[in-house]
Write a protein that binds this DNA or RNA. Structure first.
Lengths: 203, 203
DNA sequence: TAGATTGTTAATCGATTAACAATC
DNA sequence: TAGATTGTTAATCGATTAACAATC
């Protein structure tokens, strides 16, 4: 779904108003049937004999992905990675706003980071009691992350975006998305080894 | 596979020497059959009636994932995200070493970043001709990324680790791994909307 | 030998694809 | 009406799981 969203945005930027599942599939390397099946799961957005109106479909997908409402985020961990995430612009203008930043390092306390004052992690519960938070971003060192996660869950933060290299456990009804850099890199390494082997075999 | 690797490392840290597919499955929330099937694809690493020796299995998996050899990386784009990646320690000690850093901003030129001098992007080809590079890390703005990707591919850099918010196209025989922050965030948003809906329905 | 657990085969399940009637 | 393309059903494919013989 996010892939469709991105591609339709590109089409819109090119002022293309109409697209068929066949064209979409060709561009995205997916079968046309797959696309029609994906979309029809959420409703009937196309027109027989015509295809899909780009802007209409985009609106539907934005709604499905929840891009049509504001999400309140907080960030825990203002190290290298945390700072990079906080400064990252691409999702701010998609309705995802970091509204609180926490770090355990007292030296960082009080510093500004992309419009937020860095607060001590001990203030987390206080903040959560007073403010609505949809998604907690965890960019702490490995040892701290499950504890932070538990504290977020306990205060009913439903979505966890995890950048720490730990497989976080959350109860049913909560969502974790892992951004495991090392795992991603290992997947490359794994696939490189595969193609390397295949090349040697065909030699 | 990376998940197994991480978990086995934890077991090893706890000095546990032996594990069965049943135990593994329980901890990782996978069926035992799945695990045995995954592993047997690469060989027979277990012992009948006993299970798997943690350190042996770990060695096999490290080999499968290519963690037993050094990978030469370069980083293109030394902005917020690029700097965070360069400073990230977790993969350096897994054999992934960033050995060249490039940025188009002349102000950054000559600066040090985690042991490397930042070079102008125009020197990319020169560097690639003189040095072996396995994986190119792309952390440039969206407009530059496909161009950089093409230049890496042209110089036979087989693996591309993409942090820019673009779906990069590479020819057959090359590998791209996308770290699309926004997509990941949208998946959370999507799932949050789902559980929200389910909760409303059961009300 | 009895107990445990693998590696693998066969059965099940779900997801992808092809095909086509519906319809703009 | 003829042409195009959807939404959906039925067929295919692949991946997951259960079951069990092999064996330590």
């Amino acid at each position: 779904m996010p892939i469709y969203s991105r591609f339709l945005n590109e089409l819109k930027a090119k002022d293309i108003q109409r697209v068929s599942s066949g064209q979409l599939g060709k561009s995205l390397n997916i079968t046309a049937a797959q696309i029609r099946s994906d979309l029809s799961y959420f409703g009937s957005f196309g027109q027989h004999g015509y295809g899909y109106r780009v802007d209409e479909l985009l609106e539907h997908i934005r709604h499905i992905l929840g891009m049509d409402k504001l999400h309140h985020l907080i960030l825990v961990g203002a190290g290298n990675l945390g700072r990079a995430i906080a400064s990252y612009g691409s999702f701010r203008d998609r309705g995802f706003a970091i509204q609180g930043i926490f770090d355990s390092n007292p030296l960082l306390e009080g510093n500004f980071l992309s419009g937020c004052i860095i607060q001590p992690v001990s203030k987390l519960e206080e903040y959560l009691a007073a403010n609505r938070v949809d998604i907690g971003v965890i960019a702490t060192p490995r040892d701290a992350s499950q504890d932070i996660c538990d504290r977020l869950v306990k205060n009913n933060v439903r979505g966890i975006w995890n950048f720490s290299p730990i497989h976080l456990i959350v109860p049913q009804g909560f969502i974790v998305e892992h951004m495991h850099l090392t795992d991603s890199l290992l997947r490359i390494s794994f696939k490189l080894r595969e193609i390397e082997q295949r090349r040697e075999e065909t030699k």
